[in-house]
């Protein structure tokens, strides 16, 4: 069999590109992190501040993924299944969080909920802190990750023929049973995809949180901001430790979601 030269070139080029763009930096950061020795790296990771910021990031990411699963699926459902005025406009608005620079997102939120604003002031007088506190982190993350699940579920819902649901109805299923046993399993893979992307994004979000969270160590400092702080104060080793952990977690989430997806799609052969 003769190998098409053009084919071979294209294949090698794309492999080379992926290698340079993605794999090489990952290798670089990993080898750099291990340079100072395993013990040193471990000490950096388990330093109280690093560990706290990492735990905060992880919990926040879990919370927003859980919320997104509901709001994202519901939004996609409403956009596909219902007709209402200004639907097209609303559909276009969904992508806005992707388009707005995250720093701007942070500033928007501070302007609305900051202590100097009407809404923020009102809440603060009642003892509810949003900006420069943990709720601000959640709010910022919800904003920047909102489109993920909506946009992964929407096309699946659009393509879904109504006949499976109709079959369930004629077989005596209530609307709720139909949703739970017929619609949800069909949507599950796309919900998982969106959830995984939201989670990864939440682990790494920097711009909006840097503005919104106040970044108080051991209180509102998330992992990415901690890493940035370490770099700023010339502690490269400290930054590398947590970076490697984040990297590992992103990988783990991606793999886990892939396995879950394959499982929920097993009936497709």
């Amino acid at each position: 069999m003769s190998v098409n030269k053009g084919d071979l070139t294209l294949r090698s080029l794309s492999l080379f590109y992926i290698g340079m763009l993605i794999i090489l930096p990952i290798l670089a950061i990993t080898s750099e992190a291990f340079k100072g020795g395993l013990q040193n790296l471990w000490a950096n990771i388990v330093s109280t501040q690093a560990l706290y910021s990492f735990r905060l990031t992880l919990i926040a990411a879990f919370i927003i993924v859980l919320i997104n699963i509901f709001t994202g699926t519901a939004t996609a459902w409403v956009l596909v299944r219902y007709r209402f005025p200004l639907k097209d406009l609303m559909d276009a608005l969904i992508d806005l969080p992707f388009a707005i620079p995250t720093v701007v997102t942070g500033i928007m939120l501070v302007t609305l909920y900051g202590p100097m604003s009407a809404a923020g002031g009102f809440l603060e007088r009642r003892g509810i802190e949003i900006m420069f506190a943990k709720p601000g982190i959640i709010l910022a993350l919800l904003f920047v990750t909102f489109p993920f699940i909506v946009r992964s579920v929407q096309p699946v819902l659009l393509e879904m023929e109504p006949d499976m649901e109709e079959a369930a109805k004629t077989l005596g299923a209530t609307p709720f049973t139909t949703f739970r046993r017929v619609v949800l399993p069909t949507l599950a893979p796309s919900i998982l995809t969106g959830a995984a992307l939201s989670f990864s994004r939440a682990l790494g979000e920097f711009g909006s949180i840097a503005i919104v969270a106040g970044n108080i160590p051991m209180k509102t400092q998330v992992a990415s901001v901690y890493i940035y702080g370490e770099i700023e104060s010339c502690n490269n080793q400290g930054a590398l430790g947590l970076s490697v952990v984040l990297l590992f977690f992103s990988f783990a989430v991606l793999t886990f979601m892939n396995i879950l997806q394959a499982r929920s799609r097993r009936y497709e052969r």
């Binding site: 006949d163 499976m164 109709e166 079959a167 004629t170 497709e268």
Partner: peptide
């Protein structure tokens, strides 16, 4: 649901999962 009729669809409409 209340009519208790059996309906068979052209494209089967089986629950694929």
């Amino acid at each position: 649901r209340q009519r208790k009729v059996g309906f068979v669809f052209q494209h089967y409409a089986l629950f694929k999962h």
